[in-house]
């Protein structure tokens, strides 16, 4: 906590302003459809931040994160449908299951290098989806195979995690995002964070220095999967319907990776920035062009990926950092201190 308060006051000011803006946003935005979009933006920022623990700091590229999101979603939903257990409790169980699964998968795969790890995670993600689609029920637990599960509707109820208004969903996911961002911050400034960064690109060199890279990677993996599982429950409760092809699909895993890379992986604000940019872009292009000329919106989306990667290979965090420096921290020059945005360099 002390570290946090030792920040440059201007950075704190910007963060506080941003936070304040997010908290009062629902006062300005009243349309439920627009609220839904903002909730999804924050949810994707959350998913990407959980991904960041592995994909950002451990120097590997996971492309199967939907598996852990799906495990969280399915666990809480199945527990609620079968035993009436509150999704809040199911969320924790789901997170723990996802973390366990993450460790089981991480143990052997985290030793692999870039491409192998990426492909292994794709196989895990797809494997989980195929498994779920093939299973109708396990004992009393209805999985429903490819049809997915439609969550029983209840009245407006906190314990059942169902609300008529979008507002509670908004604040819940906002709080979840803040927690995960704080966790990211503390991890980056902890021993684990430094070790992960050291082992990111050259694990052999770090191992030679006596850092047990794979052990720290495993810890990062467990945290990441646990948090992703929690997000999965939120996703399920927001949509009240889980469908294996979308919650366990490759598309979701890829979108998370896109957001991370476009925003700036291995930084605190990268995922938020990426989600703020990519989500509205994909929604807008779909709304404006989706019905005009089928496929055009995805062409535009692909072009944006290519162009951003071409000019900002470290993600949009870079130009934003420069911009913020110009606007606010001019006098202090480039000595921004260990704030979130500077960490891009640290992670490399």
């Amino acid at each position: 906590m002390k570290q946090l308060l030792n920040q440059n006051p201007k950075i704190l000011l910007i963060s506080a302003l941003l936070l304040g803006a997010l908290f009062i946003l629902p006062l300005v935005v009243t349309s439920p459809a627009l609220m839904q979009i903002f909730i999804l933006i924050i949810l994707y920022a959350y998913f990407t931040s959980t991904w960041n623990f592995v994909g950002g700091f451990a120097g590997v590229l996971p492309l199967g994160h939907s598996a852990f999101i799906g495990i969280g979603a399915y666990t809480s939903t199945v527990l609620f449908q079968t035993f009436g257990i509150s999704p809040w409790l199911g969320m924790i169980v789901g997170g723990l299951l996802a973390a366990m699964m993450g460790v089981v998968i991480g143990l052997p795969t985290l030793k692999l290098r870039g491409a192998y790890f990426a492909l292994a995670t794709i196989a895990v993600g797809e494997g989980v989806r195929v498994l779920v689609e093939n299973v109708k029920q396990v004992g009393p637990l209805m999985i429903n195979g490819p049809s997915g599960i439609s969550i029983k509707l209840t009245e407006n109820s906190f314990s059942a995690f169902q609300f008529d208004s979008k507002l509670p969903y908004y604040y819940i996911i906002l709080a979840m995002l803040l927690i995960v961002l704080l966790l990211t911050y503390f991890m980056m400034n902890s021993k684990i964070g430094y070790y992960l960064a050291a082992g990111g690109e050259e694990p052999e060199a770090a191992e030679a220095l006596g850092i047990k890279v794979s052990r720290y990677r495993l810890i990062a993996m467990a945290i990441s999967c646990f948090l992703a599982g929690l997000g999965g429950t939120f996703y399920a409760q927001l949509m009240l319907y889980i469908y294996p092809k979308s919650i366990l699909g490759l598309d979701l895993s890829f979108e998370i990776a896109f957001i991370a890379l476009i925003g700036g992986r291995g930084t605190i604000l990268g995922p938020v920035l990426g989600a703020l940019l990519l989500r509205p872009v994909s929604e807008l292009t779909r709304i404006y062009f989706g019905s005009m000329l089928p496929g055009l919106h995805l062409v535009i989306f692909g072009l944006i990926l290519i162009v951003v990667m071409r000019y900002y290979p470290k993600g949009l965090v870079e130009p934003v950092k420069i911009l913020l420096n110009k606007l606010f921290i001019n006098r202090l020059g480039k000595q921004g201190g260990p704030d979130g945005t500077d960490s891009a360099e640290k992670a490399d």
């Binding site: 590229l61 062409v299 692909g302 944006i304």
Partner: peptide, 24 residues
């Protein structure tokens, strides 16, 4: 960088563009 991850994302971008250009 030994295994450039941005290039992977760019090839994914190319995938989206080509498939959907074909659709158009």
């Amino acid at each position: 960088v030994r295994e450039p991850i941005t290039v992977i994302i760019v090839t994914t971008g190319i995938w989206y563009v080509l498939d959907n250009l074909a659709l158009m």
